[in-house]
Simulated assay, not measured.
Amino acid sequence: MNTYRIYVLSPEERVAEVIEDAFATDREALETAEDLSAGQFAAEVWDGERLVARLGGEFSLS
């Protein structure tokens, strides 16, 4: 099991919520992130320093 961090983001790209939990696979972490981000702007799933995926909200550096 790996420890993942799920960041739920606001439309302003600010962290609204952080969840840290152990999951057996990336898929399990992504499913949880999908549930947590319902009705929110976006969510990012991290495994250590590796970005697993970003769900929702288009990313922009500007």
Rank of each mutant, 00 (worst) to 15 (best):
D26L: 00
L61Y: 07
L55N: 11
S62W: 06
G39N: 01
L61P: 02
L36S: 01
E49V: 02
V45A: 08
P11M: 12
F23S: 00
S37N: 13
G56T: 09
G39W: 01
E13Y: 15
W46K: 03
D47G: 01
E13K: 09
T25R: 07
A33T: 14
A53N: 15
T25N: 05
D35F: 12
A43V: 08
V15S: 04
S37Y: 07
E58C: 14
A43I: 05
G48H: 04
E44L: 13
L51Q: 06
G56A: 12
T32G: 00
S10R: 08
S62A: 11
Y7I: 04
P11E: 09
G56M: 14
P11N: 04
L36K: 11
V18C: 08
M1R: 08
A22S: 12
A38P: 03
D35H: 15
V15N: 04
V15C: 06
R14A: 09
E31N: 12
S60L: 12
A22F: 09
G39Q: 00
I6A: 04
D47L: 15
M1L: 05
L55K: 10
R54W: 08
G56S: 13
E28T: 08
L55S: 08
Q40L: 05
E12A: 15
R14I: 05
A16H: 05
Y7P: 01
N2T: 12
S10V: 07
E13N: 11
A43W: 01
S10K: 15
E34F: 11
P11I: 13
L36Y: 06
M1I: 08
Y7V: 09
T25G: 03
T3Q: 12
F23K: 00
E34V: 08
R14Y: 13
I6K: 03
Y4L: 02
E28F: 05
M1P: 13
E58T: 10
R5N: 11
A38C: 14
S60Y: 04
A16Y: 03
G48I: 05
P11D: 11
A16W: 03
E49G: 08
V18W: 06
D26N: 04
A22E: 14
W46R: 07
P11V: 13
S62D: 11
A29R: 02
